[in-house]
Protein backbone atom coordinates (compact mmCIF):
# COMPACT_ATOMS: atom_id res chain seq x y z
CA UNK A 1 0.00 0.00 0.00
CA UNK A 2 2.88 2.38 0.67
CA UNK A 3 3.61 1.88 -2.99
CA UNK A 4 0.14 3.12 -3.92
CA UNK A 5 0.61 5.99 -1.52
CA UNK A 6 3.83 7.19 -3.08
CA UNK A 7 2.46 6.70 -6.57
CA UNK A 8 -0.66 8.73 -5.83
CA UNK A 9 1.35 11.52 -4.24
CA UNK A 10 3.77 11.33 -7.19
CA UNK A 11 1.01 11.68 -9.76
CA UNK A 12 -0.46 14.62 -7.89
CA UNK A 13 2.91 16.37 -7.92
CA UNK A 14 3.43 15.59 -11.59
CA UNK A 15 -0.04 16.92 -12.40
CA UNK A 16 0.69 20.09 -10.45
CA UNK A 17 4.15 20.30 -12.07
CA UNK A 18 6.08 20.59 -8.82
CA UNK A 19 7.75 18.56 -6.07
CA UNK A 20 6.51 18.29 -2.51
CA UNK A 21 5.71 21.73 -1.18
CA UNK A 22 8.73 23.74 -0.07
CA UNK A 23 9.05 24.21 3.68
CA UNK A 24 7.82 27.79 3.73
CA UNK A 25 4.64 26.99 1.79
CA UNK A 26 3.99 23.93 3.90
CA UNK A 27 4.46 26.03 7.01
CA UNK A 28 1.92 28.55 5.73
CA UNK A 29 -0.61 25.77 5.19
CA UNK A 30 0.14 24.32 8.63
CA UNK A 31 -0.49 27.76 10.06
CA UNK A 32 -3.84 27.93 8.27
CA UNK A 33 -4.75 24.57 9.80
CA UNK A 34 -3.41 25.54 13.20
CA UNK A 35 -5.57 28.62 13.47
CA UNK A 36 -8.73 27.89 11.51
CA UNK A 37 -10.61 31.01 10.53
CA UNK A 38 -14.30 31.17 9.66
CA UNK A 39 -15.13 32.05 6.09
CA UNK A 40 -18.25 34.00 5.24
CA UNK A 41 -20.87 33.61 7.97
CA UNK A 42 -24.45 34.48 6.96
CA UNK A 43 -25.93 37.55 8.60
CA UNK A 44 -28.82 35.54 9.99
CA UNK A 45 -26.38 33.65 12.25
CA UNK A 46 -24.95 36.79 13.82
CA UNK A 47 -27.76 37.83 16.18
CA UNK A 48 -27.46 38.41 19.93
CA UNK A 49 -28.11 35.74 22.57
CA UNK A 50 -31.87 36.16 22.62
CA UNK A 51 -32.19 36.45 18.86
CA UNK A 52 -30.27 33.24 18.23
CA UNK A 53 -32.48 31.33 20.65
CA UNK A 54 -35.60 32.56 18.87
CA UNK A 55 -34.04 31.80 15.49
CA UNK A 56 -33.11 28.32 16.66
CA UNK A 57 -36.66 27.62 17.80
CA UNK A 58 -38.07 28.93 14.55
CA UNK A 59 -35.65 27.10 12.24
CA UNK A 60 -35.89 23.82 14.14
CA UNK A 61 -39.65 24.14 14.13
CA UNK A 62 -39.56 24.53 10.35
CA UNK A 63 -38.07 21.04 10.12
CA UNK A 64 -40.55 19.42 12.51
CA UNK A 65 -38.56 19.61 15.73
CA UNK A 66 -40.99 20.21 18.57
CA UNK A 67 -40.36 22.18 21.75
CA UNK A 68 -41.23 22.45 25.41
CA UNK A 69 -39.95 25.74 26.76
CA UNK A 70 -39.33 25.71 30.51
CA UNK A 71 -37.81 28.07 33.04
CA UNK A 72 -35.50 25.81 35.03
CA UNK A 73 -34.08 22.28 35.20
CA UNK A 74 -36.71 21.63 37.86
CA UNK A 75 -39.39 21.85 35.16
CA UNK A 76 -37.78 19.30 32.88
CA UNK A 77 -39.27 16.08 34.31
CA UNK A 78 -42.77 17.53 34.09
CA UNK A 79 -42.22 18.69 30.53
CA UNK A 80 -40.90 15.27 29.52
CA UNK A 81 -43.76 13.44 31.22
CA UNK A 82 -46.29 15.75 29.63
CA UNK A 83 -44.76 15.36 26.18
CA UNK A 84 -44.72 11.56 26.43
CA UNK A 85 -48.31 11.47 27.62
CA UNK A 86 -49.34 13.79 24.81
CA UNK A 87 -47.78 11.44 22.28
CA UNK A 88 -49.32 8.36 23.90
CA UNK A 89 -45.85 7.07 24.65
CA UNK A 90 -44.88 5.07 27.71
CA UNK A 91 -43.31 7.07 30.53
CA UNK A 92 -40.07 5.15 30.17
CA UNK A 93 -36.83 6.01 28.46
CA UNK A 94 -33.14 5.34 28.10
CA UNK A 95 -31.16 8.33 29.31
CA UNK A 96 -27.60 9.37 28.58
CA UNK A 97 -25.39 9.00 31.68
CA UNK A 98 -24.76 12.72 31.58
CA UNK A 99 -23.99 14.66 34.80
CA UNK A 100 -26.04 17.56 33.51
CA UNK A 101 -29.06 15.28 33.13
CA UNK A 102 -28.40 13.72 36.52
CA UNK A 103 -28.75 17.19 38.01
CA UNK A 104 -32.36 17.25 36.86
CA UNK A 105 -34.70 16.27 39.76
CA UNK A 106 -36.21 13.28 37.97
CA UNK A 107 -37.24 11.72 41.27
CA UNK A 108 -39.92 14.36 41.57
CA UNK A 109 -41.75 12.49 38.83
CA UNK A 110 -41.72 8.92 40.13
CA UNK A 111 -43.95 7.77 37.26
CA UNK A 112 -41.01 8.17 34.88
CA UNK A 113 -39.04 4.98 34.46
CA UNK A 114 -35.46 5.79 33.58
CA UNK A 115 -32.62 3.52 32.48
CA UNK A 116 -29.16 5.07 32.11
CA UNK A 117 -26.85 3.91 29.35
CA UNK A 118 -26.69 3.15 25.64
CA UNK A 119 -29.55 1.53 23.81
CA UNK A 120 -29.63 -1.78 22.00
CA UNK A 121 -32.66 -0.74 19.99
CA UNK A 122 -35.40 -1.86 22.34
CA UNK A 123 -36.03 1.55 23.89
CA UNK A 124 -38.86 3.58 22.38
CA UNK A 125 -37.66 6.84 23.82
CA UNK A 126 -34.26 8.36 24.62
CA UNK A 127 -33.31 11.46 26.55
CA UNK A 128 -29.94 13.13 26.00
CA UNK A 129 -28.24 16.45 26.46
CA UNK A 130 -26.57 18.36 23.66
CA UNK A 131 -23.18 20.00 23.34
CA UNK A 132 -24.61 23.02 21.54
CA UNK A 133 -27.33 24.10 19.16
CA UNK A 134 -26.92 26.09 15.98
CA UNK A 135 -29.55 28.70 15.26
CA UNK A 136 -28.96 29.31 11.56
CA UNK A 137 -30.63 26.05 10.56
CA UNK A 138 -32.17 24.81 13.81
CA UNK A 139 -29.46 22.21 14.26
CA UNK A 140 -28.49 20.32 17.43
CA UNK A 141 -24.83 19.46 17.97
CA UNK A 142 -24.40 16.19 19.85
CA UNK A 143 -20.99 14.87 20.82
CA UNK A 144 -20.30 11.23 21.56
CA UNK A 145 -18.53 10.16 24.72
CA UNK A 146 -19.06 8.26 27.96
CA UNK A 147 -21.85 10.66 28.87
CA UNK A 148 -23.53 10.52 25.48
CA UNK A 149 -23.72 7.19 23.62
CA UNK A 150 -24.59 7.97 20.01
CA UNK A 151 -26.98 5.02 19.73
CA UNK A 152 -29.40 7.14 21.79
CA UNK A 153 -29.55 9.66 18.94
CA UNK A 154 -30.59 7.14 16.32
CA UNK A 155 -32.22 3.92 17.49
CA UNK A 156 -35.26 5.04 19.50
CA UNK A 157 -38.32 6.31 17.68
CA UNK A 158 -38.49 9.37 19.88
CA UNK A 159 -35.47 11.42 20.88
CA UNK A 160 -35.81 14.08 23.57
CA UNK A 161 -32.99 16.57 23.98
CA UNK A 162 -32.62 18.69 27.10
CA UNK A 163 -31.06 21.97 26.04
CA UNK A 164 -30.15 24.97 28.22
CA UNK A 165 -30.65 28.13 26.15
CA UNK A 166 -27.07 29.20 26.82
CA UNK A 167 -25.90 26.42 24.53
CA UNK A 168 -27.52 27.99 21.49
CA UNK A 169 -25.09 29.77 19.16
CA UNK A 170 -25.59 31.42 15.79
CA UNK A 171 -23.40 29.58 13.29
CA UNK A 172 -21.84 26.14 12.89
CA UNK A 173 -18.45 27.78 13.30
CA UNK A 174 -19.45 29.19 16.69
CA UNK A 175 -20.40 25.72 17.88
CA UNK A 176 -17.18 24.26 16.54
CA UNK A 177 -15.13 26.96 18.26
CA UNK A 178 -16.81 26.02 21.55
CA UNK A 179 -15.96 22.40 20.95
CA UNK A 180 -12.31 23.20 20.28
CA UNK A 181 -12.17 25.31 23.41
CA UNK A 182 -13.75 22.58 25.50
CA UNK A 183 -11.25 19.92 24.50
CA UNK A 184 -7.53 19.37 24.57
CA UNK A 185 -7.01 19.29 20.82
CA UNK A 186 -8.78 16.00 20.21
CA UNK A 187 -12.28 15.46 18.95
CA UNK A 188 -14.94 13.08 20.22
CA UNK A 189 -15.39 10.02 18.03
CA UNK A 190 -18.53 11.49 16.56
CA UNK A 191 -20.10 14.89 16.35
CA UNK A 192 -23.69 14.61 15.20
CA UNK A 193 -25.38 17.68 13.76
CA UNK A 194 -29.07 16.87 13.86
CA UNK A 195 -31.65 19.03 12.12
CA UNK A 196 -35.10 17.65 12.77
CA UNK A 197 -36.33 14.07 12.84
CA UNK A 198 -35.26 11.46 10.28
CA UNK A 199 -36.97 11.56 6.86
CA UNK A 200 -36.75 10.31 3.32
CA UNK A 201 -37.95 11.50 -0.07
CA UNK A 202 -37.05 8.30 -1.87
CA UNK A 203 -40.59 7.20 -2.75
CA UNK A 204 -42.03 9.51 -5.39
CA UNK A 205 -40.34 12.56 -3.87
CA UNK A 206 -42.80 12.62 -0.99
CA UNK A 207 -41.22 13.56 2.31
CA UNK A 208 -41.96 10.81 4.85
CA UNK A 209 -40.85 11.10 8.45
CA UNK A 210 -38.96 8.46 10.42
CA UNK A 211 -36.85 6.64 7.87
CA UNK A 212 -34.24 4.92 10.06
CA UNK A 213 -33.62 7.43 12.79
CA UNK A 214 -36.17 8.93 15.19
CA UNK A 215 -39.63 9.82 13.94
CA UNK A 216 -39.91 12.53 16.59
CA UNK A 217 -37.33 14.98 17.85
CA UNK A 218 -38.37 16.99 20.88
CA UNK A 219 -36.30 19.69 22.57
CA UNK A 220 -36.89 20.74 26.16
CA UNK A 221 -35.42 24.22 26.13
CA UNK A 222 -34.42 25.59 29.52
CA UNK A 223 -34.55 29.35 29.37
CA UNK A 224 -33.98 30.20 33.04
Amino acid sequence: MSDARSQILGSIRRALRRDALPADKAAALEARLGDPQPNLIPARARGGAEAVVELFVQMAGNVQTTFSRVKSPRDVPGAVAEYLAGQNLPAAFAMAPDPELDAVPWAERPTLSIRRGRTEGTDQVSVTGAFAAVAETGTLMLTSGPSHPSTLNFLPETHIVVLPAGKVVGAYEDAWARLRAARDGTLPRTVNFVTGPSRTGDIEQRILMGAHGPRRLHVVLIEG
Binding site: S144, T151, R189, T190, V194
Partner: peptide, 22 residues
Protein backbone atom coordinates in the same frame (compact mmCIF):
# COMPACT_ATOMS: atom_id res chain seq x y z
CA UNK B 1 -33.53 22.44 -1.25
CA UNK B 2 -33.25 21.80 2.48
CA UNK B 3 -31.46 24.46 4.48
CA UNK B 4 -29.46 21.67 6.07
CA UNK B 5 -29.72 17.92 5.79
CA UNK B 6 -31.09 16.12 8.85
CA UNK B 7 -27.85 14.39 9.79
CA UNK B 8 -24.38 15.82 9.29
CA UNK B 9 -22.03 13.46 11.03
CA UNK B 10 -18.37 14.10 11.76
CA UNK B 11 -16.44 10.90 12.50
CA UNK B 12 -12.93 10.89 13.92
CA UNK B 13 -11.30 7.55 14.60
CA UNK B 14 -12.77 4.55 16.46
CA UNK B 15 -14.52 4.21 19.80
CA UNK B 16 -12.69 5.96 22.67
CA UNK B 17 -11.95 4.58 26.13
CA UNK B 18 -15.13 4.96 28.15
CA UNK B 19 -17.41 5.20 25.09
CA UNK B 20 -20.45 2.97 25.36
CA UNK B 21 -20.90 2.48 21.64
CA UNK B 22 -19.28 3.12 18.28
Amino acid sequence: GQEFSVYTTVSTGPRRPGDLDG
